[in-house]
Design a protein around this nucleic acid. Structure first.
Length: 638
RNA sequence: GCCAUCUUAGCUCAGUGGUAGAGCAGCUGAUUCGUAAUCAGCAGGUCGGCGGUUCGAAUCCGCCAGAUGGCUCCA
């Protein structure tokens, strides 16, 4: 039977017996079976090299370069990891060990004696020993009884539980070396290409992801076809660590955290300069886009939250207090406050869409274990807005929003983004008709904007469908930022109405939306994205003025005043240090522009400009010219 | 909240049961300097907190807090 194989864009044809393993065909063609080629894709999915050719007539061969190739590679690596661990912990109970985006893990019940990081080297050593034998992965179909007997004898309740849930005639074991594991595959033909491994970390993980279940030890690791690739990956991790916003926040003196307020960021002067630059820019942009700004109180009566449904659904995450013996709550969201503003006048359809934004400071009692720098805090400022409109206006509003979101992300250099449309869940409120109309409006807007998106069926909120935005930063890490959510519930709960052309009261649709998400989190993302090299329009210190000696301080102060007059952000080094030291410090602060002033400059009314971005130095630039250049380059993207 | 690890001077970190250390930063003095660290001196710590073991604890044990990596969560 003739089959076609594709490898690296080349097509190969071969005569194959359906019974013979795929690797035999590849070997006949002289293709690097098992070394560079890890598996094949057919119409039915992934096909391992050791499996018979079967009825398929076309095979797309995959190796390290493809996500599927990595998937198989790391899946097999997980088995080897388990075998290595079992060598040192013979009584440990294996559960599951899948490949993930970067590497793989294995969840193991060590029965109270888990490994420690000190054990990683010997695990890695044993792993490599096993991988390089090499081990061949052999698939075995077993009956349910046989499978159960095997794991009951091993006293492994986890595998027993898994087996009971599998279709009885689809249970397979994989054997590699002396190691046997319940697994549906697919796997490498053999472990030969696994030439480097790193055990990364240990973590607790609940059995089946349920916090009521026993906690297992998750061992994270990653493997590569070469030592060089492992090293490149470790360098990437180092680079990510170097860009850690928590480290940069300290180095650049932007913000801090304290035991006295876990999860509550303290913003320092330079952090406020950055935060304000960001907010000033976005505020202007929103006003231009037809929004109006509001501000609503931080503390509101508990009855308000009961009415909004937050008390019912979100109580655990709220902070409560008491005023004049009445129960109050600290707002975890801004929407109820916004609806109170909406209700202060009788709204006409002519007033809609009404776009109200609020840089709202919200407090949420996040679990202590999830707090992470600025990424996950207990108090943050959302770039929140609520748009009240008629159902007919949804699509146009969403289209305008999509344009706005694109513009905002582009301003920070986030080129790659992913968009997710989440649709009606099983439990929902509102009429089916309204849902269909809303989903069609969201999808229509995405289509009209020509934006690629993925659908998360059933992942919408109970009160409406939503669109989420995920950007990729300069290290290609993903960050969820903005969200657009339609809400049919809140307008009803708060009795919001508008008078239609028919003179009757109608219920408006509410669109909740955040573009940056929260300013705190966004600053964190931005710091990691830029490695702290903030663009001039955001830099806390745009220009640092360095007098060559104290004699030129008066001239330097004049310059500082001129920069301040233009609403820009200077800093002045008044220390009694030599110029070299001042330059060094300013460069470590990642200040975009440095003005050096000494006798020449003071006498001629000039500055010497040192430019970090262009790595240039220019002497004797007239002050006015330098100021104009600074101002021009500090303009935010429009 | 759960699991693991960590917490020493403002910062970065040494210090494995026997008198708390370094570099940077800070202060004082000298120096007045031209594009990535001037020199000298000084000061700075109930070793996260509380309790225990011990003749003796930064070091060993327990509890608490905070942080880090995960899990669960993120309406």
């Amino acid at each position: 039977m003739a089959i076609v194989l594709e490898w690296k864009g080349q097509r190969y044809t071969a005569d194959a017996d359906p019974e013979e393993p795929l690797y035999a065909v590849l070997q006949r063609l002289g293709l690097p079976a098992g070394t560079e080629i890890f598996a094949a894709k057919t119409q039915e999915g992934l096909h391992e090299l050791a499996a018979p050719v079967g009825p398929h007539s076309f095979f797309q061969l995959v190796g390290w370069e493809s996500p599927e190739g990595k998937f198989v590679f790391w899946h097999s690596s997980a088995h080897i990891l388990a075998e290595a661990i079992q060598h040192f912990w013979p009584d440990c109970k294996l559960t599951i060990g899948p490949p993930i985006e970067n590497g793989f893990y294995y969840d193991i019940d060590f029965g109270g004696h888990p490994p420690s990081p000190a054990d990683f080297p010997r695990i890695e050593q044993k792993f490599m020993e096993l991988a390089q034998q090499p081990e061949y992965f052999v698939r075995k179909k077993v009956s349910q009884e046989e499978a159960l007997r095997y794991y009951e004898q091993k006293k492994n309740p986890y595998k027993v539980e898994l087996i009971r849930e599998l279709p009885p005639d689809e249970i397979t074991f994989y054997e590699s070396g002396g190691f046997v594991d319940l697994c549906k595959g697919p796997h490498l033909w053999h472990s030969g290409p696994v030439r480097a491994v790193k055990v990364l970390s240990l973590a607790g993980a609940y059995w089946r992801g349920d916090s009521r279940n026993p906690q297992l030890t998750r061992v994270y690791a990653i493997s590569f076809p070469s030592q060089a690739e492992l090293e490149a990956y470790l360098h990437l991790l180092e680079e990510a660590a170097r860009r850690d916003h928590r480290v940069l926040g300290k180095q650049l003196d932007l913000f801090s955290f304290h035991e006295e307020g876990p999860g509550f960021p303290f913003w320092h002067p330079k952090g406020m300069r950055l935060l304000n630059a960001l907010q000033d820019w976005l505020r202007k942009k929103l006003l231009q886009a037809g929004y109006e700004e509001i501000k609503t109180p931080i503390i509101l009566t508990q009855t308000l939250w009961e009415r909004s449904g937050h008390y019912e659904n979100y109580r655990e995450n709220m902070y409560f207090t008491e005023i004049d013996e009445q129960p109050f709550a600290v707002k975890p969201m801004n929407c109820p406050g916004s609806t109170l503003v909406y209700r202060t006048s009788l709204r006409s359809y002519r007033d809609l869409p009404l776009r109200l934004f609020e840089f709202g400071h919200v407090h949420r009692h996040e679990l202590s274990g999830v707090l992470t720098g600025l990424f996950r805090v207990r108090a943050f400022t959302q770039d929140d807005a609520h748009i009240y409109c008629t159902p007919e206006q949804i699509q146009e509003e969403i289209q305008a929003l999509l344009r706005l979101v694109q513009e905002v992300y582009a301003a920070f250099g986030f080129q790659e983004k992913e968009i997710y449309l989440s649709t009606r869940p099983d439990k929902y409120i509102g009429s089916l008709e309204l849902w269909n109309q809303a989903e069609a409006a969201l999808e229509g807007a995405l289509r009209a904007a020509g934006l690629p998106y993925q659908i998360n069926p059933g992942d919408g909120a109970f009160y409406g469908p939503k669109i989420d935005f995920v950007v990729r930063d300069s290290l290609r890490r993903r960050w969820q930022l903005g969200t657009i959510q339609l809400d049919f519930s809140m307008p009803q709960r708060f009795g919001l109405t508008y008078v239609g052309p028919d003179g009757q009261a109608h219920t408006p649709v509410m669109i909740h939306r955040a573009i940056l998400g929260s300013f705190e989190r966004f600053v964190g993302v931005l710091l990691e994205h830029t490695a702290g090299e903030l663009p001039l329009w955001l830099a806390p210190v745009q220009v640092k003025i360095l007098p060559v000696s104290e004699k030129f301080l008066p001239y330097a102060r004049q310059l500082q005043a001129k920069v301040l007059e233009r609403g820009l952000r200077p800093a002045l080094d008044e220390s009694d240090e030599k110029l070299g030291k001042k330059i060094r410090l300013a460069e470590q602060e990642k200040v975009p522009l440095i003005w050096v002033v000494g006798s020449k400059e003071a006498e001629t009314g000039t500055v010497a400009v040192r430019d970090r971005q262009h790595r240039t130095q220019r002497e004797a630039v007239p002050v006015e010219e330098a100021l104009q250049e600074l101002q021009a380059r500090s303009l935010p993207p429009s």
